[in-house]
Design a protein around this nucleic acid. Sequence first.
DNA 1: ATGCCTATGCGACATAGA
Length: 272
Amino acid sequence: MPPAAAAADHRFRSKLLKIATFNVNGISARLPRLLDWLAETSPDVVCLQEIKTVDEGFPVEAIAAAGYASLVHGQKGFNGVAILSKQPAVETARGLDGDPADDHARYLEAEVGGVRVASIYLPNGNPQPGPKFDYKLRWFDRLTARAATLLAGERVVVLAGDYNVCQQAIDTYSEVAMTADALVQPETRARFRSLLFGGWTDAIRALQPSGPAYTFWDYQAGAWPRDMGLRIDHLLLSPVAADRLTNAGIDRSVRGGERASDHVPTWVELAV
DNA sequence: ATGCCTATGCGACATAGA
């Protein structure tokens, strides 16, 4: 099909695909909350982070009963990512190239509904400076390399996940309190900026250029009731995906639920 | 300045998170 015909075809058939990211902080502890949220909001694709279980421990049946297939890249005790989808998904990558010794489960990528989707759990990097921060920066560079490969394909791509980056001062409840934190260091922010300058669109900021848009509130110090949050969960869109962006949002109310995660679901809708 | 809280692991405190 020639490009013009393809574009016309897409306009006639246009339907919305809702893609979300949600750091659940333990799938076992969070399953009831996840199922409630799936039933309420009915996303088409969900990228999960911090499932904190091996593949065999993932509740595939309960999630299938809710109408979703699961792709799982798990790990014992911590980390672990997954992609849930109403339509069948085909796995395209598990882990990032560039460091064979890296055994953390932090990257999973799949093709679903004509969209390439990645579930990303970028290392936290604290304390900083130190080996954990060095690992964060190296991992970020490997992600950037993967992003460049995906961008060259001129496809609809959504890089969704917990980036552990507060890109601007408005993305923190207090820039002063965060001064020494790995999430706001110049080296961290420079790498995120490099992704944006490379052609990726930060979906939430594209639709809400100013003001807080927190996606995380610490369990400690009454951070949620005092609205002392951070914006660290992001959905980055390739140019073709950004052209199709119709809506984006943050499901803040999930943070107030019983036994909530410290992160809340964040999502985009694309006309596909 | 420090810890506050939560989830997990073959648990009885330690590690990790952000």
